[in-house]
Design a protein around this nucleic acid. Structure first.
Lengths: 88, 88
DNA sequence: TTATATTTGTCCGTATGTATG
DNA sequence: ACATACATACGGACAAATATA
């Protein structure tokens, strides 16, 4: 069976664990550039954490430039064209 | 190029930006007293916002007494004769 | 009369931003 | 970290009234 993805007592706090998982999915292309990241509620349900925790994770990804959020709309995977500091 | 009139991330929320633009057009006379304001759908298309956002903007203008709405007919620019708090 | 198109009114569901315990 | 509430926003759907053919 599937191991719980998020460990509340892990070395890294939950919001960083969530961020790491999503970052990996973006890097592998499971979350394609330009596509919408699942809603905060969807991620909250999937990982079994509060929406606030998901928001913290998304904030990390935003700071890394991996995603960008449009208020009242959603969060999207940043494309190379949108990346401000050089296409990786 | 044409600047997008509405900025989803602006200091003011979109519905207030729409209200401000329409209020300006009324003040300059681009929208004359007694004339019909474009339909909610037309404004929605013009500004690239949801009808709900347009309705919020029109609500603001109604509260300011700049326009008045007739169900199933449309919204009209209030004339000085119609203004409740002192004719011109 | 009937039919169609237009416009506003209302409701639903979903989403993010912010604020508060 | 979690739970809840409110404001704002988008999209869709349907009803009622109106106008026109």
């Amino acid at each position: 069976m599937a191991a719980r993805e998020i460990d509340p007592r892990g070395a890294k706090p939950p919001f960083r664990q969530v961020a790491a998982i999503l970052a990996a999915e973006i890097k592998t292309g499971a979350l394609a550039p330009g596509s919408a990241v699942p809603s905060e509620k969807a991620l909250s349900d999937r990982f079994g954490v509060a929406r606030d925790t998901v928001r913290s994770a998304l904030r990390v990804l935003r700071e890394e430039g991996l995603v960008h959020t449009v208020p009242s709309r959603g969060t999207y995977v940043t494309t190379s064209a949108e990346a401000p500091d050089g296409e990786q």
